[in-house]
Design a protein around this nucleic acid. Structure first.
Length: 479
RNA sequence: GGCGAGUUGGCGGAGUGGUUACGCAGCGGAUUGCAAAUCCGUGCACAUGAGUUCGAUUCUCAUACUCGCCUCCA
């Protein structure tokens, strides 16, 4: 039995995970992206966090006598940002959401993120949302006003705010919410809103048998409806970035608990801290954000990005820096070289211990360093793979040299050439020509390794094919 | 203003009531014609003040600073 402990944002304590239905497996829900644009780097953090948790649960569940974990991550494909983008680009909404969804899956795959068991799209669950809104209306937790349906915070006043540690009164005191005249309480939030021509619209909920409006769901309700449909009214783990705690998750809890008559929506709330860039939160309004794809296109391997994320505990802010990426790349290159052709062995127990202890990925990486230093490559490989590192899928970046066949044959010739030159120099004691040649090669982005037995020339990232060609031509002239 | 998180060595980053990871960089050595790569060894820290304690970096309180949420955002 492996005890898994996670920090529950709701209680602000580290708690032992006990599945509500062990035989059905641990049920977890991660709030996925709104598909209107490329995922920025911050979007990757919860995905990687939940991916590690999912991998851990898949490994540990059989031994714990639990069923296989059930992991849901949604796509929110109905949202005003999507509508706005469609209008700007003059393209159909469906085209944009389909394209963005594909991008997201590609980008996450590049980071070694496994696909969840279910990836529901919000637009496929509109009837479930309307049903939930209908229940809230019928039972006095929601009201219709000017074609909107709003959740009445006062109907659940004693409970609202528990997750984020604030009371309704506190929030009203410092409220910066949109104060719409039709709201009974400024904290009330939209469950349903009317659509104008051209906006996506579905049949809405009713009051006294009359439809409130043809419209579309507000933000928040989609997660409540999809989680209920796929995981049930109460499940084990729910999470996302900590900026979702309020209002998104708070509102989900309010909707779900009121509509389902439950005490809690999820047992454990798991929130990751924000990603920062140069010490500031990456955000759209600050304009300092870049996408996962930007980094991949710049030649930062997905595995390197993943390693950088795993090296900081999820509950702490993480600064993305080029230097961290370089260090991670160096480490992974070394491990990849060490484990080339190796068959994975057994997992190191310490890895499980670290991950079970509130997903201490940084501690797990420490263990990997130990295994590497000890030369225990089979254990290193197996252990790294539980973290989603050193997998076959992510392989390839480390040895894809920029050199083509012609370059490699030139390097081959130069190796022999340089070895002969050095042998001569050892006798004449005049090493100047050898050193000159070496400098030229290094300038061309070639790593020069000389040992007793021979010379090895390896192209590096800075390899310059044209420069190599010049060196070869020069040599040919001289000879 | 309300709520929350954090402050560990040159940098990154774990963890612990008493021996304080690990990585990178540095330093010393082996190896090398010289390097590179590799290997071995090694120095350096726990924001500030007070309290609890035989003993605190670790617990408590206060102070300072940083960051986040309260508004689309993971």
């Amino acid at each position: 039995m492996t005890e898994i402990r996670l920090r529950n944002s709701m209680t602000r304590r580290v708690e032992t995970l006990t599945p509500l239905k062990p035989e059905g497996g641990v049920r977890m829900y991660l709030c996925g992206p709104t598909v209107y644009d490329r995922a920025h780097l911050g979007n990757a953090r919860p995905s990687i966090l939940f991916d590690v948790l999912y991998r851990l649960l898949r490994y540990v569940s059989p031994e714990n006598g639990w069923g296989a974990p059930v992991y849901v991550r949604n796509f929110t494909d109905v949202d005003d940002k999507i509508n706005a983008r469609a209008a700007t680009e003059g393209r159909p909404i469906g085209e944009i959401t389909a394209e963005t969804t594909r991008w997201y899956l590609e980008d996450m795959a590049a980071l070694g993120v496994l696909e969840p068991d279910h990836m529901p799209r919000a637009t496929a669950y509109i009837p479930e949302m309307v049903a939930m809104i209908q229940t809230l209306l019928d039972e006095g937790h929601a009201y219709a006003a000017e074609g909107h349906v709003l959740f009445a915070v006062d109907s659940w006043r004693a409970h609202y705010g528990a997750l984020s540690g604030r009371s309704v009164d506190d929030m009203i005191a410092g409220a910066r919410v949109e104060v719409a005249p039709y709201k009974r309480n400024p904290m009330d939030f939209v469950l349903w809103k009317p659509s104008t021509d051209g906006e996506p619209a579905w049949p809405g909920p009713q009051v006294d048998g009359i439809e409130v409006s043809r419209g579309r769901p507000g933000w928040h309700i989609e997660c409540s409806a999809m989680a209920k449909a796929l995981l049930g009214e109460t499940f084990d783990i729910h999470g996302g970035g900590n900026d979702l705690m309020f209002p998104h998750h708070e509102n989900e809890i309010a909707q779900s608990c009121c509509a389902n008559h439950t005490e809690q929506m999820a047992q454990i709330w798991l929130h990751n801290e924000m990603l920062q860039v140069e010490g500031k939160k990456m955000s759209k309004s600050l304009g300092n954000f870049f996408t996962v794809r930007d980094l991949l296109d710049q030649g930062v391997p997905g595995e390197v990005i993943r390693f950088v994320f795993l090296s900081t505990h999820y509950s702490k802010p993480m600064d993305w820096t080029a230097r961290k990426a370089e260090e991670a790349e160096k480490t992974l290159r070394k491990w990849r070289a060490q484990t080339r052709g190796v068959t994975p062995g057994l997992l190191h127990p310490q890895i499980i211990d670290c991950l079970s202890d509130d997903l201490n990925t940084s501690g797990a990486i420490h263990e990997l360093h130990q295994l590497s230093a000890a030369g225990d490559v089979t254990t290193l490989l197996a252990s790294a793979r539980l973290l989603g590192l050193m997998t076959e899928k992510l392989a390839g970046w480390e040895d894809v040299g920029p050199a083509d066949g012609a370059d490699l044959s030139r390097l081959d010739d130069l190796e022999r050439n340089l070895f002969a030159m050095r042998a001569r120099a050892k006798e004449t004691k005049d090493f100047a020509p050898v050193d000159a040649m070496k400098s030229e090669l290094m300038a061309a982005g070639v790593e020069v390794q000389m040992s007793k037995d021979g010379v090895v020339l390896k192209p590096t990232k800075e390899f310059d094919s044209d420069a190599l060609l010049r060196i070869t031509r020069q040599r040919e002239k001289e000879v």
